[in-house]
């Protein structure tokens, strides 16, 4: 009798397990389609105010493995030479005039505007999130993602994924209170070479920043490997050495 119940329970759970596995697999593919595990890229961040006024930042980014990211500010001149480092949940900011790395948190924003530090130094989604649910809707997969720990910037993500390209088209980010913090829209799928084809533009807005918009543009994204020591505090002042 017990065995029958167990089998019935297993039969009931199997589709859910299969679904979860599919969701994780899809999320991992989304991660790899967005970026190689180790890469370098250039990004332009544009903050657009309600009156159309813009402020732009250009950053050089490198990533290695699951949880190591570093960035270097190239523009504007007032921010040039600033660098950031992420190792898992640890984040630091180095400002040349201050002369030493300072710990920062994921919810702060070094650029101002809608993008915060976690957006700028994003890790793979599969590293930070579990797939809570997945469903299909037309050409899209709808993934409901739950943060693995309380250290993650957004507690919950609702991700729309293009079934064919396995790339996100839209992500809504929610706080643990259920409040919508921002919406990211992925646009302008472009071939970066080396087998990397992904959206070159991410637009975001937030109910917390009414009528403001921030845009992230990608260029020069390519697979590249780096020494582990690049992702240490000691290297933050030397980030420029990576650029050839």
């Amino acid at each position: 009798m017990k065995i029958t119940k167990l089998l019935a329970f297993a039969a009931f759970c199997l589709p859910m397990l299969a679904s979860a596995l599919d969701g994780v697999e899809i999320l991992k593919k989304v991660d790899r389609n967005l970026e190689p595990e180790s890469y370098e890229s250039y990004r332009k961040l544009i903050n657009i105010e309600p009156d159309g006024t813009k402020k732009e930042f250009v950053i050089y980014s490198v990533k290695k493995g699951k949880d190591q990211v570093a960035t270097l500010f190239l523009s504007p001149t007032s921010d040039k030479g600033r660098s950031t480092l992420r190792q898992g949940d640890n984040m630091w900011l180095y400002i040349p005039s201050v002369g030493k790395p300072m710990r920062i948190t994921s919810l702060q924003s070094i650029t101002g505007g809608v993008f915060n530090n976690a957006d700028i130094m994003r890790l793979d989604y599969a590293v930070e999130y579990d797939v809570k649910a997945i469903e299909e809707k037309g050409d899209l997969y709808l993934l409901d993602l739950k943060a693995k720990t309380g250290e993650v910037a957004y507690d919950n993500l609702k991700m729309k994924v293009d079934k064919k390209l396995l790339l996100p088209t839209e992500i809504e980010a929610y706080a643990s209170s259920g409040m919508l913090m921002k919406t990211l829209r992925f646009k302008d799928v472009k071939d970066f070479g080396g087998g990397i084809k992904r959206p070159a533009t991410i637009e975001t807005d937030s109910p917390l920043y009414k009528d403001f918009k921030s845009v992230m543009l990608y260029s020069g994204l390519k697979k590249k490997d780096f020494a582990d020591e690049v992702f240490t505090q000691g290297f933050m002042a030397r980030m420029e050495e990576l650029r050839k």
Binding site: Y42, R43, K44, I46, V58, Y60, L74, S75, T77, K80, T201, V215, L217, Y218, S219, G220, E240, R243, K244
Partner: peptide, 17 residues
Amino acid sequence: EFKFDASEFEKKIVEFS
């Protein structure tokens, strides 16, 4: 408006700021 080309930000041998 949203065009971005990374080649504009190539590393320079000599920099002044």
